[in-house]
Amino acid sequence: MKQIYAKILKNENLGNGFRRIGIAAPYLAKNAKPGQFVELRCSGETDPLLRRPFGVHRVTKGGIELLYEIVGRGTEIIARKKPGEILDLIGPLGTGFVLPSGKPTAILVAGGNGVAPILFLSEVLAKKKVKQHVLIGGRSKSHILCEKDFKRCGARVSVTTEDGSKGHKGLVTHILKELLADNGPKPAAIYACGPTGMLKAVANIARTHRVSCQVSLEEKMACGVGVCLGCPVKVKRGHGLCGTGYEYKMVCKDGPVFDSEEIYWE
């Protein structure tokens, strides 16, 4: 991990509050692994104060891209930044996805802005010639992102929207259930990023079908490096300090990617 001052190459509008920012950062391009994130400082001012974590969305030649949704004042400030401006960021942080060995099939599940780290994963899996089936879910048509990018990676893509405005109507987990219920060869792994409810449902399905599953979690963070202990997630541990079957791990340092079986889902 390093603290880097990197030049913005582009900051494009993907519509409906989603944007993609590209920065020149050879160090990150070389060292970032799918599932890892960076902590970005919104401005030199004290308000908003804390850095914002973003999963690495894609590695480009000599840099990285981040996909983000404008959800508050921090992301509003980032959205106004112009190419040529300098960004202060720390990364790569956290653990990444554990990639499957060999050339099996992987199912990638992305809900809403959860596509951000999943695309980077897809691009790396494509290079490893892993067969991929990507399931993208969102509230409506405008929340479905990166469909073309995944197809470019050679992935089979299924889209679901809650309102039926694009793809199948319903939840992305419905498709996942159907896929695994098929009597065909089982996928080697499921990788998922999205809202907690979706991740919990994906974890349940994975358990039912005995497929290994990794989930990328989100939590409010301060330091991003494991110092402040501000971003806990409950994990199963019999000998935990709580004495109640769980203990805390930190999303920033121990995660953000966890084996779904490790999480103490509530």
Binding site: A222, L229, C231, L241, Y248
Partner: peptide, 9 residues
């Protein structure tokens, strides 16, 4: 000590 439940910050 286990610490407090999230969110913590």
């Amino acid at each position: 000590r286990a610490g407090n439940p999230p969110p913590r910050v």
